[in-house]
Amino acid sequence: MNSVLPLMAGIQLDWFSLPQQLVNGLVVGSIYALIALGYTMVYGVLRLINFAHGEVFMLGGYTALLTSYAMGYSPDAIRQAFAEGREVTSSPLNLVIMLLVAMAVCAIIGAIIEYFAYRPMRNQSRIAALITAIGVSLFLQYAGQLFLPSNPPPSVAQDVNPYQAVYTKVFSEAVIGEGGTVIRPAVEVTITQGRVIMLITVVVLMAVLTYLVMYTKTGRAMRAASHDFDSASLMGVNVNRVVTATFMLGSALAGAGAMMLTTFEGTTLQPFFGVLPGVKAFVAAVLGGIGNIPGAVLGGLVMGLAETLVTWLGYSEYKDAVAFVILILVLLVKPGGLLGSNKVEKV
């Protein structure tokens, strides 16, 4: 029954920690899902892969941080408060403001990118638009290197956010032998309050998105444009407005994800912060069926769980490779994605 040790000897299924790992996977996956939505919505309407989406995500992180500085939680202010022995805690209101500002700024950035970079390319070949997207992505990364600080001190982000509590549910205690040897590991699930809030926020945002897309006029226009861009414009849909709205929605979700990641997970910011999550979320979008909104959510969760389960099996060094293995498998077996339509397209 000594299933944890030795860890080095190939796959050792550690059933005791599976519940915890599933929770971990869910947390990671929810953020992937949030970013993947941006990829999938833009693709749905424009058939364009917005490679700059990861950079919008990065800028959202910086926006949230700078907002917290502006609200009086700058590193200097916090240091001074500690020196004077004052306790600094931000209120939930501060976090809500950070979230909203990050979402708003990202939405504007998304709209600007669309207007200046993608709109002039709209009637060009798809490959030209794709290369433009890569160009915008690199531009933002390196402009970030010039103008944004690397590893800025986190502020509200961690030390002073009010959601530091940790919830632990122990199902069975660990049995520890002589010298600390684990005879039977504990079965327990630990989750921080911050992560709980993150999960709830993701669910709320997705509900709002579903409402916007399914029950509003703009949403209907979006679906029409996604179905057939040209016909929609002939039917009187203002497609330019629809495209702008799509970019704004997707970017706002990325901004929310970045704010929560830096605040509740303690991730440090740097101009390449968006690259890895961006790539993983792109894979998630393709996995779920790019252009398909529920698909992006499903894809994100599957990606998060797959990564965590690879770690659970003891192969954390292959954690990132699994994303690309999944991508290749999906493209080979079901190119449309899990929830995508597999219809044959006319050439």
């Binding site: 920690s17 929770v23 971990n24 996977g25 990671v28 997970e265 999550p277 770690t311 003891g314 954690k319």
Partner: peptide, 9 residues
Amino acid sequence: SNFGGQLTR
């Protein structure tokens, strides 16, 4: 940014 999987192990 999330080391949950490894840390659980």
